[in-house]
Amino acid sequence: MLIRKAANPGYSEVTPREIYLNRRRFLATGSAILGGLAMPLAVRAAKLAAAKTAFNAGAEKVTPQNVVTSYNNFYEFGTGKDEPSKNAPKWQPISPWTVRIEGEVAQPKTLDLDQILKLAPLEERIYRHRCVEAWSIVVPWIGFPLSVLLNQVKWTSKAKFVAFETFYDPKQMLSPRQAGIQFPYLEGLRLDEALHPLTLLTVGMYGETLLNQNGAPLRLVVPWKYGFKSIKSVVRIRFVEEQPPTAWSLSWPAAYGFYSNVNPTREHPRWSQKEEQRLGEGGLFNAKFIKTQMFNGYGEQVAKLYEGMNLSRSY
């Protein structure tokens, strides 16, 4: 256990907020966005320039970077919170990283990471991120709307949902038996959710490319849903007619639904969802707990997607 301290020497220091904000301002003014990912597949994060946008979590403090890089749910690399940051750095994402877009489309398409990065300017968005385990963080993600990527293909009128799949290599990752959930990890969104401007195709955070434990090189961030919906290390996107199976709801359907919108009124058998612990603020004796907001506080933007739906039934 003592080794843990030495495991991530680069992140043992919390970046002071002032420095962090200044650097971001510098990057925002200085660059016309795409900073040409010099080493997108390197284990170490590379600097990544992105334009500052209006998306931010209000007055809420950005969570220290070392929290976000050391406390992860990425079951392919271990089911303990500290395991992905120990095991994932050894993994070399395949190069070139490609994403296959298929299913109910006129013409399936495979794009590599370089092609994807040229599709749209990168923006930084500070989102609240709420895990179903009743903790939350505030993260400055870098990416662009998923809709930009989806629009690279023409989907058919049959397409109602979009299914996503995480990279899986049984030789380097846990088996489904060990982790207790289905691999490759599966997620899905309704088409209108996937096209929603808040849904971010993410390639970086904190001004850098994503680290492996955070879903390098490419992940989704769906800020009004529980964290497990924000699928990591995406390799496949499939337009489908029927609601696709998702890894967590396959493992425990009563606890994890397809929608999994953040909802403080819907009890989870394991965790009360009324409150959340904001990580990185407060320690053992003064942990910070806050009320959980409906749709994680993004109701204004997304509530209309669910008009007329019974959200305690469609959880």
Binding site: M1, R4, K5, N66, V67, S70, Y71, K81, D82, W135, Q277, L279, G280, G283, L284, A287
Partner: peptide, 20 residues
């Protein structure tokens, strides 16, 4: 003793309550 030591080292992970 080890736990208290980790505590003084500020090494109780990002979620100290859960860890302890």
């Amino acid at each position: 003793a080890v736990l208290v030591w980790f505590g003084f080292q500020m090494d109780l992970t990002a979620n100290p309550i859960e860890y302890v």
